[in-house]
Design a protein around this nucleic acid. Structure first.
Lengths: 139, 139
DNA sequence: TTAAATCCTTTCATTCTTAAAGTAAAAACA
DNA sequence: TGTTTTTACTTTAAGAATGAAAGGATTTAA
């Protein structure tokens, strides 16, 4: 399905999605047009889902990054899920999980005060276990 | 520091980082040249850290997404950290955390068999608590 | 063996980018 | 207060990249 050229293209676009198709072509020994055609195919296959940027969240004022393990208070998760839906400003991901807890909620906040405000609200709908990220260490 | 035009630019690039500077300029009522200059400034400020793609990990064969809370076996974390460094194929992020556990390890695997292989190795250096993602629900 | 499909290149018109010069408004300074 | 500097933008124009079309080579299917 995917050959080594496709994998190189994905690798290169992961590192710099604004590269020109000509440069991308040079990298995989194809013309820009051929590289562009492969990229369109990867998009059509749904392998490339989108093009985005990495933003420095600390410089954007989000100093606190937290993972919160959620234990909903009753079997109906809807109140919790509605709460999360209304907190898009802070919530990065809400993973439904099996294991310890029902959800793993990834959030970011400008301060511990804001985190505390959030936890007070959250506690209406769920119990939780808080983990604050000290250092990201991306791999 | 950042005005509303900068925020619109970041928002637009987050949605599609391959947009032309001309289109981006149209969106914020500037010429392509002025928009490009703003983008360069955002890069220089370190607010835009990079341009990347979203890849469908399931279509790439990574069917299992897991968060593993790590409790290192002794106070020296180095053996665990060395292990993680050698497992780049599976590890997405290794967050150092305060709270429950020492690290939160985000991983992906093609199968539960591969996950099991990983856990057996991991268990040489750390105890762990496993959470498998059932549904991502990005916000 | 022929027909169709796939994947690539070449060509060329169109569009985008980049650099330079110029303008206007705001900020810094005497 | 008046002058200079800086900042942010536009316009212009050359150079580079893109996208569409035509064509060739190789593989797949009939």
């Amino acid at each position: 399905m995917l050959d080594s050229t496709d994998l190189k293209i994905l690798d290169q676009l992961s590192k710099n999605s604004r590269i020109t198709m000509k440069e991308l072509g040079d990298y995989v020994h194809l013309t820009g047009q051929a590289a562009a055609a492969r990229v369109v195919k990867l998009e059509d296959q749904g392998i490339i889902e989108g093009y985005t940027i990495n933003v420095n969240q600390v410089k954007m004022g989000y100093l606190v990054h937290a993972f919160i393990t959620i234990f909903t208070k009753n079997t109906n998760h809807q109140p919790y899920l509605e709460f999360v839906k209304g907190e898009k400003e802070w919530v990065i991901n809400n993973y439904k999980i099996s294991g310890n807890g029902c959800y793993l909620l990834e959030c970011q906040f400008p301060s511990h005060e804001r985190l505390d405000d959030f936890l007070v609200e959250l506690n209406q709908w769920a119990n939780y276990q808080l983990s604050i990220v000290i250092h990201p260490h991306k791999v």
